[in-house]
Simulated scan of single mutants.
Amino acid sequence: MALLRLDLQYFNQEKTEQATPKKREDSRKKGQVAKSQDITTAILLFAVFVFMVAFGSTLGDTLSSIFTYAFTETIHLEVTPENVETVLFQVSVEAVKVVLPIMAVAIVAALVANYLQIGFLITGEPLKFDLNKVNPINGIKRIFSARAIVEFLKSMLKVSSIAVVCFTILWWNRSELMMLSQKSIGNAIAFFGQLTLLMGVAATLMLLIIAVIDFVYQRYDHEKNIRMSKQDVKDENKNMEGDPLIKSRMKERQRSMAQQRMMSEVPDADVVITNPTHYSIALKYDEDKADAPFVIAKGVDYVALKIREVADANNVVRIENRQLARGLYNSAEIGETIPEDFFQQVAEVLAYVYKLEKRAK
């Protein structure tokens, strides 16, 4: 039995259950999401290279104008603090015109890549100081973990893929490379620029393919890491719905308070119908509140006894009618008017009660 109990405890602690929505939301708030950094890098590089292909000539003209101005105009200026400051300012402005669009495209591409993977998320949890992150034992475990091996193989795949792509493009253009000595400087620079952009776009596309595969793996690994044990699911449900012991105590207290309120209404009843010991139904007829008699208290066994005691203490008439008491108890709740089927019987009871009260007066 002890071994069986240990096996059950181990089974309950084994993380075999899919993460609940609350677990996923809590993990997301901590920054634990399925994300591939390679997708961000690939989309960023692809956007930059596409931008260079589309606007590279314009940026090249801007750079050429900087050098032309430097070697034709500024070279003749006298070296003074004012002239140096002016030249540096002009060159900086022109350099910003070249660099700023590229940086803007890279930032937008990075934001879009992250949004496509995880949506809108801002959290500072990953930046919090954690001693486990600097624990050397944990560091060694991470170095020799399965995830580290996967990352190493992925890096080797990226390097080899990029090398193959670049070598293939250079091999296809080997004849033109051999003839560069016959071209002018401008044509040679233009050829190298086009070749570089071509290798960049091709390598980026290869990285994007690898990144998609990596994203699938990251999702699998994330789902595996946030799995829950059966005990975790039970604990979460208990926290969300409340401790059953506390809930039962609250319900018991609510019932007790309801009974106290109900007992406080019994002295105002017109009649208490009993069965004669197991059921007690207190009825009242008030034309201003309802068109028919309504139930102000009811109960069985102990509660029925308390209703009878309160009724006797306040001189409320008690009528024993087994069939009527049981029928009213099963058909009407506290505060509800009695069903139409019992109108005749209750009317006869109330008439008898009113007759007794009139005779007593």
Rank of each mutant, 00 (worst) to 15 (best):
V87D: 09
A104N: 04
E348W: 05
I143R: 13
M52W: 10
D61C: 05
L305V: 08
N138K: 11
I210N: 11
D26E: 14
L350N: 04
A292V: 00
V295F: 11
I210L: 15
R255G: 09
V134C: 05
L153G: 12
L328P: 03
Q117N: 01
F129G: 04
K30Y: 10
D288E: 12
E85D: 11
I319D: 08
A148C: 03
R227H: 07
T86C: 05
W171D: 13
M1G: 15
S229T: 03
T123V: 03
A188W: 06
E25G: 02
T123Y: 05
K247I: 02
Q345Y: 09
K22A: 11
T277V: 10
R359Y: 11
N132F: 02
K158T: 08
I66M: 15
M263V: 00
L283N: 03
S57I: 11
E125R: 04
H278A: 03
S161F: 12
T58L: 12
F67W: 10
L350S: 01
V295N: 11
S27C: 08
S175A: 11
L6S: 13
L77E: 12
A34I: 00
A297P: 00
T41L: 14
Q231E: 14
R147Q: 15
V87C: 04
A258W: 03
A347M: 03
V93H: 02
E252Y: 08
L177F: 14
L283K: 00
L328K: 00
